[in-house]
Design a protein around this nucleic acid. Structure first.
Ligand code: FES
Ligand code: FES
Lengths: 146, 146
DNA sequence: TATAAATAGGATAGATTTGTCCGAAATAAA
DNA sequence: TTTATTTCGGACAAATCTATCCTATTTATA
C-alpha cells in the first residue's frame, strides 16, 4: 500500500520542517531541509516549487533567501492541502479497483469497505494542521527522519 | 492515494472472475478474463502466474486448459492473500512518510492516524473472502468493469 | 553597479511499474 | 503419434515516477 507518493512524503515532511522554523522566524534552504528530512535535495526543491505555486509556502529568492511559511498559515494549513498540491485529488476520487468511476449505483466488489477506509484517511488529512504536526516535532513527540 | 498497484487490481478482479466461473464448473482463459475485467491480456496472464505460484488458483495447461479455483478455496481465500501474493507485505509494514522503520517509540508525524487507517484496511482484507465477492458479482450487486 | 547567494525551471538520466511479444513446454483429442 | 490448443517464462518495450544537473533569474549587500 503506497499511501502517498515519494514526492508527497517529501512535501509533507518539508512543509512541517519549514513550519517548525518559521515559527521561530527562521528561513530555510532546500539543502538544509533535505538534510533534516532525509530526502534528495534537487527533487525536494522541485516539490517545494509546487507548494509555492499552491500558496502553501513562500519562497524568497536571492541572497539570504529561502523558504518560509506565513505564521497564520501554519495554523490553518491542513495536511489535505499539501497532499492535494502534490498528488492532486486522487485521494478523493477513483475506484480502488480501477473502475472508470467510483459510483454507488455501479460499485466494484470492494467499494463499500474501500470507501470507509478512504473516508477515514480523508478525515485524517482534513483535520490535521501543520501547526499540530510542527508542535509535535518541536516537543520531540515525533520525528522527521530515520 | 494508490491503495493497490495496477497488478494487484487486476489480480483481485481476475481471482473474483475465476471464482464466479469455478463455482459453475467453468474454466476460463486469460483472454476471457481480461475481457471481462477490462485489463491488458498479457499482463494479466503474468499476474495469474503469480497467483498460481502462491496456490491461490490452479492452471491447467494444454488444450481445453485454463484457470480455475478449488471450490473449497473459494470459501477460505481472503483478499489479503491475493494482495500478499502480488504486492507482498507492503500493506502491513512501512512508514507512511518513508521513515526507515515504523516504530511506536520513534514515530513519524502521522504515525498514529496512519496506523489506524492501515489497521482498518488490514481488517478489511483479512475479513473479505473470495466467496462473498463472487456472490456479489453473481447477484449483480457489484461489478468488475466500466 | 558589481558581486555573491539563492530559488526557478528546463533537460536529462535512472529506476520502477506497466505492458507486449514470442517461442517453449504441456496436454487433450483426433 | 500428430496436431491444435493453451499456459509458462524470458526478453523486450513503453510509461511513469524518482532523481540529478545546469543555467537563468532574482535579490541583498558591499
Ligand atoms: S467503485 Fe470501486 S471503490 Fe467505488
Ligand atoms: S512511523 Fe510513520 S507511520 Fe509509523
Amino acid at each position: 500500500m503506497q499511501m502517498f507518493s515519494k514526492a508527497c512524503e517529501y512535501g509533507i515532511k518539508a512543509a512541517i520542517y519549514i513550519a517548525v522554523n518559521s515559527s521561530e522566524n527562521k528561513r530555510v534552504s532546500p539543502k538544509e531541509i533535505s538534510e533534516k528530512i532525509d530526502s534528495p535535495q534537487a527533487f525536494t526543491a522541485k516539490i517545494l516549487q509546487a507548494l509555492v505555486r499552491h500558496n502553501i509556502i513562500i519562497s524568497v529568492r536571492g541572497a539570504y533567501g529561502g523558504f518560509e511559511i506565513d505564521k497564520t498559515k501554519i495554523e490553518t494549513t491542513k495536511l489535505s492541502q499539501i497532499v492535494y498540491a502534490i498528488d492532486g485529488d486522487s485521494i478523493y476520487n477513483g475506484c480502488g479497483l480501477g473502475l472508470h468511476t467510483c459510483d454507488e449505483n455501479h460499485p466494484c466488489p470492494v467499494h463499500d469497505k474501500f470507501k470507509l477506509v478512504r473516508e477515514e484517511l480523508r478525515d485524517m488529512l482534513d483535520n490535521t494542521t501543520l501547526e499540530r504536526l510542527a508542535l509535535e516535532i518541536k516537543s520531540g513527540v515525533s520525528f522527521l527522519k530515520t
